[in-house]
Design a protein around this nucleic acid. Structure first.
Length: 676
DNA sequence: GGGTTGCAAACAGAG
DNA sequence: TTTGCAACCC
């Protein structure tokens, strides 16, 4: 069919309400005003990438693109929301209508609308990571692999493996070869399991995270008319953090843009930190091949950090085995050297961080302009205790999500079976909660339930004094809710009345805390419109398990940020503390299976360093406390161990005794002796 | 004997 | 907090 491409009528610059050339530098302006077609923007850390995208959105809207035909794909919903908010305040309410979100959320929307054309039932349930793992565990046992002589991968590993296969679009054999050589002999069993997993999901109307992307891509590939429709509704596709997209996501971008080719991908290969999840930063380099004629634009000037911080960042990147042809620079003058602070042990580190945070606050840096970053979520446990003790308010990003806590998942599972009675994973979970029911019984009951039209009305062919009462109670509670539907908040309340009494038996140690969490959860349910929407939101945008706000007089003060480095991507802070910079943590021993893995850990450090605007403190404990006995000395992270003092200034912590004056360097740090 | 429950060791990052 | 194994119940 012949196609005629209609040229866009752009308004003359004089009629635009925003003065782009004043608000942006020359490179940024080129991005914002780029014409149709494919554009790749390579943007270093702190070069105003977000700001530029925001202006781009406003510019497109101002020059006549209907906002609902702009799609902004980001990595987190938080990022999408922030950009749309900013575009809205920059221009006007029209920007509200820009569509934005994660690839996963966008695909879910498409599958809900057109999934029937891919053979998906209307009420399919989205499995989150641990749900998928649970399914695999059930299947692993059912196939008898749990007691094979060879060591068989555990559910978490299985999930990662199968996920990689699909995200990277490689075969299982290839994956085993390159990533799991120890399991290559198990290829037949793993292939069998993989097939069983697919069949199970199909049978029970389940879709996992990878399916969301893959099935959408397949759906669009197979149906040209649908592809036209969908692509036609995304006249401009903007993709943030392109270095963290995987093969399927790159394919999706091509499909979304298939009609018009209007794609703008923004990324920084030096900040790619999601390889473990299938991301391939080479997508950036393949972009010009995949979109022939793509223009390449760059953002180079850093507006965020002082030169000393950038010097450290550049120095960090130089250690990579791959060459990054980028050197961050700024026009900003001055700035303190980043400091490296060895601490005798973890608690000293905690005290140091707390003390400095308070001191900075005294000096006028509000808590919400400061952040503590770390490699993995548990690195901040000691600090969290101390912050609570000192009533310093904080929020924590990354790590455990509210909806991943066992007791919250229990309640969610009840909601899921009400929504999708075929959801075997959820059934399995809620049956296991009953006294007298273990994996085997739950499994056979689940199978029976799945074969029923309406498991709530038929008589159950299971009786045993071991669990009869509990089972009857469960079915009565669920059947009541099915029979007389209630608004979601009431439904959650009813379920909690059923579930809360079980907490004593299930988790005897911390009933109070869990009850609190569940009340928080019930509060969230108040804000949702309906059950299906609530479950979707929980699966795709899990609520962070925010540490209970520090109680106290300062309740209104905007809190300090604690975050894993991964979750801090795209954020910036006046002062940044990077804690636990020791070998084994950063780089993490778990991550170091191959050569490339080391580079990713290095990039992680790079991301952490480039979050800082004015102050950066890198600290580490020199002694790791073992459980009970077995304390051992640590080595500082190899990435910072050999840097010259002129790049990373060593600071010595000294207990502040009454009389003795600390050395000049540290006097500022330790003048508040009362905390010591 | 099959299944459940209770007790000892390992633990990342996220949609 | 979750997994793997041994004691314990119908």
């Amino acid at each position: 069919m012949r196609r005629i491409v209609l040229k866009k009528e752009s308004l003359p610059a004089a009629e635009l309400s925003i003065s782009y050339s004043e608000a942006l530098n020359r490179q940024q302006l080129a991005v914002v005003q780029a014409g149709d077609g494919a554009t790749l923007v390579v943007a270093g850390a702190g070069t105003g990438k977000t700001r530029t995208l925001v202006y781009r959105v406003a510019y497109l809207v101002e020059t006549g693109t209907p906002p609902e035909q702009i799609v902004l794909l980001t990595f987190t919903r938080r990022a999408a929301k922030e950009m749309i908010d900013r575009a809205t305040s920059l221009l006007d309410g029209r920007c509200r209508r820009v569509r934005g979100g994660t690839f996963h959320a966008f695909c879910l929307e498409l599958l809900r609308a057109y999934g029937d054309r891919a053979g998906l039932p209307k009420t399919f349930t989205v499995l989150d990571g641990s749900d998928s793992a649970d399914v695999l565990n059930v299947l692993r046992t059912a196939h008898g692999f749990h007691k094979s002589e060879r060591r068989f991968p555990k559910k978490g590993t299985l999930r990662t493996m199968f996920s990689s296969v699909r995200n990277r679009e490689v075969t299982l054999a290839e994956l085993l070869e390159t990533e799991y050589p120890q399991f290559t002999a198990l290829l037949p069993q793993l292939t069998e399991l993989y097939g069983a997993y697919d069949a199970y999901k199909k049978k029970h109307a389940l879709v996992d995270y990878d399916d969301l992307l893959l099935r959408t891509a397949d759906l669009l590939e197979r149906n040209q008319d649908l592809r036209r429709t969908v692509s036609g509704r995304c006249r401009h596709v903007l993709v943030d953090e392109y270095q963290d997209t995987n093969q399927v996501q790159a394919r999706l971008v091509r499909l979304f843009a298939s009609v018009h080719g209007n794609v703008m991908a923004v990324g920084d290969d030096a900040q790619s930190i999601y390889r473990f999840r299938g991301a391939d930063f080479r997508n950036i380099f393949f972009f010009p091949e995949q979109f022939p004629g793509a223009r390449l634009l760059k953002l180079e000037r850093n507006y965020r950090s002082t030169q000393p911080i950038l010097d450290l960042a550049n120095r960090v990147l130089q250690q990579a085995s791959r060459r990054y042809d980028k050197t961050l620079f700024t026009d900003r003058k001055g700035g303190d050297l980043p400091a490296v602070v060895p601490c005798p042990d973890e608690h000293y580190e905690t005290r140091f961080v707390c003390q400095l945070i308070l001191q900075l606050r005294e000096e006028g840096v509000p808590l919400n302009r400061q952040a503590v970053l770390f490699r993995s979520s548990h690195n901040s446990f000691d600090l969290e205790l101390e912050l609570n003790r000192r009533k310093i308010p904080f929020v924590k990003f990354g790590g455990l999500k509210l909806s991943e806590a066992a007791h919250v998942k229990d309640v969610i599972a009840h909601l899921k079976v009400l929504e999708n009675p075929l959801d075997a994973v959820a059934w399995n979970r809620i049956l296991l909660l009953l006294e007298g029911i273990g994996p085997k019984t739950a499994q056979s009951m689940t199978e029976w339930i799945a074969s029923q039209k309406d498991p709530f009305v038929t008589d159950r062919p299971f009786t045993s004094s071991r669990y009869e009462v509990g089972l009857a109670n469960l079915f009565e509670a669920l059947a009541n809710l099915r029979r007389t539907p209630q608004p979601l908040p009431a439904e959650v309340d009813t379920l909690l009345r059923y579930y809360l009494p079980m907490l004593d038996r299930l988790y005897p140690d911390d009933v109070d805390k869990r009850t609190q969490d569940l009340e928080h959860f019930a509060g969230l349910a108040q804000t949702a419109t309906d059950r299906a929407g609530f479950l979707n939101a929980l699966a795709l945008d899990p609520v962070e398990m925010t540490a209970v706000d520090a109680i106290g007089e300062d309740k209104d003060e905007a809190p300090l940020t604690l975050s894993t480095i991964h979750s801090a991507k795209g954020l910036e802070f006046h002062s940044v503390f990077l804690i636990k910079a020791v070998e084994g943590v950063l780089p993490s021993t778990y991550a170091l299976k191959k050569e490339e893995d080391l580079d990713e850990e290095l990039r992680l450090l790079y991301v952490a360093v480039t979050r800082a605007e004015e102050n950066l403190f890198v600290s580490y404990p020199t002694i790791q406390r073992g459980r009970g006995f077995g304390d051992h000395f640590t080595n500082p992270s190899r990435f910072i161990a050999d840097l010259p003092d002129a790049i990373l200034e060593p600071v010595q912590l000294v207990e502040a005794p009454a009389a003795e004056l600390p050395a000049a360097d540290t006097s500022r740090l330790l003048e508040d002796g009362s905390q010591a």
